[in-house]
Design a protein around this nucleic acid. Structure first.
Length: 459
RNA sequence: GUCCCCAUCGUCUAGCCCGGUCCAGGACACCGGCCUUUCACGCCGGCGACAGGGGUUCAAAUCCCCUUGGGGACGCCA
């Protein structure tokens, strides 16, 4: 059995988006699982819209997601000569022909066909004219006029198109550049791609591409069309549904494992299992279990996965990940072990990295910003008096455990519940009524900081 | 308009290919309870779906047909 070769072929006309990331992931998974190759091809034949910046952004997004590719990325634009050779050969063999129809005329005829209830396809005007090259001319594929073209899609099953539905697609643009459909086929053939996993929106291109494979005498690859990802309103995921680029999710504080796990599970399943490391997916992934219907992107579930992976991240790593968000708030960097201890107290209280930074904010503000409603409710005259009385004894403990014993004894001595003295202290130290565990906070703040915060409230 | 694809809880899905084990299982979200110094986490419980209609069959979420609904494509974009 020969090794499989898959590819991801984004066009650098924008950032890597959620849908693209998923097709990349599936291609990567299949290749890695079967010991094959996963190659990256940048489809930059649209000179107007493709940029080097987007190319870079796509590469870094892939790297962030830990989807490594084999060899150097292939730039489609640099293969234009090769594409041109194939086109010339097809013209020579009578498989393609020069067409002199002008874009405006074409558009007019399309509109007319549409108005008459027909399909807006090329009418074949130049097909039998035997024209040659000319300024503004294009080369079209001479497709079969009858019969059917179909394939057995690895995800969708058998798909068949009537050849009469297909028109003579352009292979060479008037600017001398190959079109997408031609370039893709020539590249996939010459790069020996065995499995093409791509978005659903390409099924309509597939019969045309298959005809090109036939014309080229090339062996067909396997096709697998992954369903679209939709927004909450069930239309194609777009900007107005919120962030769509992978890097935007990185900035919003999502972990790459959460995103790949979510994306894999959106469409693919393995029984009831929800949590998969990249390593695990790689073992278990299977195109048979990729669903056929479109899926709605659900940020809530992504959040859940993100908090799961946040809880799994070692504290020192988590500290490093959250630090940039803390720094953005203008805080000073604490020692690594202290930052790790802080993370331990907040990591179950936030779903994204910036949320963690927000929950940890009070540690870094001295005194912390006092929530007026918390103050009004909890820092009553009686409670302030209570804090004043407790102030000295708080200097006698050092560890969270000691603080717990101390406060429990104090509560017992006064004949009140722990909460009665914990809440005023919490508000004094954090400015909030909701916070991480009070004993841990006391340990982290230390005696001096604790006294300073009490002083600020009691002055 | 034409063609292609799709259709199980609000959402992601298991089950469908090989009909009975499914008065349909899991997860997110939501609601309730427990735990508890607060908030979370965690645990327990609840709500909630086979789009509709015809067939085939002793039996259909599972097979077939139609309808409806949704998505996609119809570019000298990729």
């Amino acid at each position: 059995m020969t090794a499989i070769i898959t590819r991801f072929a984004p066009s650098p006309t924008g950032h890597l988006h959620i849908g693209g990331a998923r097709t990349a992931l599936f291609n990567w998974l299949l290749a890695r699982q079967r010991g094959g190759r996963f190659v990256l091809r940048i489809e930059d034949t649209d000179a107007l819209r493709s940029t080097a910046e987007y190319t870079q952004a796509i590469l870094s997004a892939m790297t962030w997601l830990q989807l490594d590719w084999d060899g150097e990325p292939v730039y489609q634009s640099r293969r234009a000569d090769l594409h041109r050779q194939y086109i010339d050969k097809m013209v020579e063999k009578g498989q393609a022909y020069w067409c002199h129809c002008r874009p405006e005329d074409l558009e007019a005829r399309r509109q007319k066909a549409l108005a008459e209830g027909g399909k807006p396809k090329y009418d074949g005007l130049c097909r039998e004219k035997g024209l040659g090259p000319a300024p503004g001319a294009v080369v079209r594929f001479k497709g079969p006029e009858e019969g059917e073209t179909g394939w057995n899609d690895l995800i969708k099953g058998p798909v068949v198109f009537d050849n009469r539905e297909l028109d003579d697609l352009i292979l060479l643009k008037s600017d001398g550049m190959p079109t997408y459909n031609l370039a893709v086929v020539v590249d996939d053939v010459t790069m020996n791609i065995t499995h093409i996993i791509r978005g659903d929106d390409h099924v309509n291109n597939t019969p045309r591409q298959i005809q090109l494979y036939h014309a080229l005498g090339a062996r067909l690859p396997f096709f697998a069309h992954v369903p679209m990802i939709l927004g909450a309103d069930k239309t194609r995921l777009s900007k107005r549904h919120g962030a769509t680029s992978v890097m935007a999710y990185r900035e919003m504080g999502y972990l790459p494992q959460a995103l790949t796990n979510y994306l894999a599970r959106l469409g693919w399943s393995y029984g009831d299992q929800e949590i998969f490391s990249l390593e695990e997916m790689r073992k278990l992934f299977n195109l048979d279990h990729v669903g056929r219907s479109a899926g709605v992107f659900n940020p809530e579930k992504l959040n859940w996965l993100n908090s799961h992976y946040i809880k799994e991240t070692p504290l020192d790593e988590l500290g490093a990940l959250v630090w940039p968000y803390l720094a953005a708030r203008g805080y000073e960097r604490p020692a690594d072990d202290l930052l790790a201890k802080i993370m331990a107290t907040v990591r179950e209280r936030g779903k994204t990295l910036p949320e963690l930074a927000e929950k940890a904010g009070f540690y870094f503000q001295s005194p912390p910003e006092l929530d007026p409603r918390a103050a009004a409710k909890v820092l009553t005259p009686e409670n302030l008096e209570l804090l004043r009385e407790m102030r000295a004894s708080l200097g006698q403990a050092l560890t969270a455990e000691d603080f717990e014993n101390l406060l429990r004894r104090l509560a017992e001595a006064r004949g009140v519940k722990l909460g009665a003295i914990a809440q005023p202290l919490r508000v004094a130290l954090t400015g909030q009524t909701a916070s991480p565990g009070l004993f841990e906070i006391l340990e982290i703040l230390g005696p001096a900081q604790t006294q300073a915060r009490l002083d600020a409230v009691l002055k």
